[in-house]
Design a protein around this nucleic acid. Sequence first.
DNA 1: GAGTGGTCTAGACCACACG
DNA 2: GTGTGGTCTAGACCACTCT
Lengths: 255, 255
Amino acid sequence: MALDQDRAAGSLYRKVAADLREAITSGSFGEAGRLPAEGALAEQYGVSRGTVRQALALLRADGLVTSRRGTRRVVLGSARVQSFSELLSFTHWARSMGEEPGGRLESLVRRPADAAEREQLRLEPGTEVYVTLRLRTLSGTPVMVERTVYPPRVGELVARLPADVVSHTEPLREHGILFSDADHTIDVVAANADDARLLSCRRGSPLLREKRRTTDPTGTPVEWSQDRYLPGTVAFSIHNSLASSALSRHARDED
Amino acid sequence: MALDQDRAAGSLYRKVAADLREAITSGSFGEAGRLPAEGALAEQYGVSRGTVRQALALLRADGLVTSRRGTRRVVLGSARVQSFSELLSFTHWARSMGEEPGGRLESLVRRPADAAEREQLRLEPGTEVYVTLRLRTLSGTPVMVERTVYPPRVGELVARLPADVVSHTEPLREHGILFSDADHTIDVVAANADDARLLSCRRGSPLLREKRRTTDPTGTPVEWSQDRYLPGTVAFSIHNSLASSALSRHARDED
DNA sequence: GAGTGGTCTAGACCACACG
DNA sequence: GTGTGGTCTAGACCACTCT
């Protein structure tokens, strides 16, 4: 939960943000009410105005409050933003919903990266990658097929994991592989033979696809994944604003 | 384009951000190179370190650079982030791709809002809404069906527009309706009879759906829209990171 | 005109990465 | 140890909203 994340961190502005987030979510300022002025909050928390502004910037980015010159901030709604790790880890996500995550490794191969993979993972020609195909289940029901391509450094670790291990991000973290940034692309794709077999759907039937490239804190790509969900099982939500927009709509890429 | 947006704004940090964005995109720091230190940039631009940090925060949110304590920022890639208005206006978006946007108003009705609409648009029971159904085309080819629900204040303006007007956001802006924040939800849905007829696809065939609720700078909802795209015509991209994540994945809502 | 958030400055100290 | 970004402070002025 985003609140815990804030509290866990040591910085003052995160604590202020966590507190305000809780106050907003619990309705302390009303449905579409106004927040106290920055100065008032600064005094209340015993911090400088700059620190309050840092806290408020977090809430702004989450879509919890508006902000414009001349008037107090207005409550937009109760945010339902997930932590970054919930977003990257199927296991973590499933558990946060109270579902039991499951999975099965269908295949793991090691082979030279093709052109697209080299570009995504920024690899030299001839570099070998590890490619996994996994079926993901929620409480026993198949919901998603995941194809992930790992660069050698990460793939070697993944290859050593037991085939029945549920979470992959957790063991990777323990081995020093950190996730920091991700680019996601969402579209619709037709099920191929493997998808159809694993998800028990017809070949050619539509799946919601999420392509994701994740990098570590140094900017080095650590995985490139294609997740294909059965329709009706999942949706993606994004908040954006004039002030900050990390979302874009574009003509669909090939592949 | 994001760069123009930055330059147009008067603030110093936006100008710095625009300049850095251009430098990064043109490869001045290399493919995965390092940026100068904040202090060096501050001196170079003749501004304080705080201002440089505001500029860099913009690039960070766009996924252009990493940032972590202890090391210089690293170039992640060339951003392809759209301006907020490109994201909300089909017309603006189409033109930015060099395509000719078209559209046809299929129907416009005025009726009492149902429960879901009242909640989305935060309306009192019994309030009337304006509901439009539009077919959207790119260079003559149908790509999307758009169902939009407007609250009275906005709907009255929309109802007065000529049926053949291409852009709706532009005339609305001229009448003082401003867009500031939006929540998007993306999933897959089966085409109903209207969708099938307008998009020339089979009933039940899959469409990429974007549900969107937009609010003005005061936090008042101004539209609630459901856009349904033919598969293969469009994709959505999002960047996020440990530092800021406005994206979430969740079990699909009903409806 | 009073109050508010947006921008900018100058300086301080700290936590962390890296050689 | 040195350099870097992260956090925090105190103060200033401006642009804007609202009454």
